[in-house]
Design a protein around this nucleic acid. Structure first.
Lengths: 83, 83
DNA sequence: TACTATACCGGTATTTGAATGACGGCCGGG
DNA sequence: CCCGGCCGTCATTCAAATACCGGTATAGTA
C-alpha cells in the first residue's frame, strides 16, 4: 500500500469541515470569499461540498482567516466524531 | 495553468512549519511521534525537512495534537513572514 | 411572458504534490 | 561490532487545486 485511499470516515470529516465553512461564509458569495482567501472559487466549492475532504493546511488557514474562524475551534468541531 | 507549482515563498513557509514541528518534538523519536499521530515516519520527516511544504490540514492537526501545539499559534509562527 | 444576470452545482480533464514504502548511507552509543 | 535514529533518493498511488462545460434556481427588468 502506497497511498491509502480516503476512508469513508475521512470523507465524512471533510464534509463536516465543508459545512462549517459554508455556515461561516453566511450570505457572502463563494467568489468573493475565495478571492479574498487567495484560492479559486472552484476549490472553495469543492471543499465546501466535501469533494476535497482533506484540503491543504494553508488553504484551510487562509479560509479561516477570511471567515474569522479559529483553526483550533474549526478542528475541534469537525473532528469531534472522527477523533 | 492548472495547478500552479509551489512558489519559493510557499516552500520557505513549509520549511518554517517543519522547523517548528521539529523543535516541538524535542528529544522524542520521529517514529514515536509519527506513530502516535497516525502518520508514517517518512511523512513526518518530509514535513520536518520541508520537502512536503503544504501538508494536509488533518495531518498537521494530528501532529499538533501529539506535540501539544495550538493550530493558531503554529500558523501564526510560520506565517509571520509570508503573511 | 421573456430576457438577463448572479450564484451554485455536477461532471470532466489536467497538472502538481502529499503520503507511503524501500534501500542505502552516516553517526553515536552500548 | 551492531543497533537505533536520521537523512537522501527513487518509485508508486491517490488526491488537491485549477479550469471549463452545461444545468438549475432565483431575482431583476422590461
Amino acid at each position: 500500500m502506497v497511498r491509502t485511499p480516503l476512508t469513508p470516515e475521512e470523507r465524512e470529516r471533510g464534509e463536516r469541515l465543508g459545512q462549517l465553512l459554508r455556515l461561516a461564509r453566511g450570505p457572502r458569495s463563494m467568489a468573493d470569499v475565495a478571492a479574498e482567501a487567495g484560492v479559486s472559487a472552484e476549490t472553495l466549492r469543492k471543499i465546501e461540498t466535501g469533494r476535497a475532504p482533506t484540503p491543504a493546511f494553508f488553504t484551510v488557514a487562509a479560509l479561516a482567516r477570511v471567515l474569522g474562524l479559529s483553526m483550533d475551534e474549526l478542528l475541534a468541531r469537525c473532528a469531534m466524531v472522527a477523533a
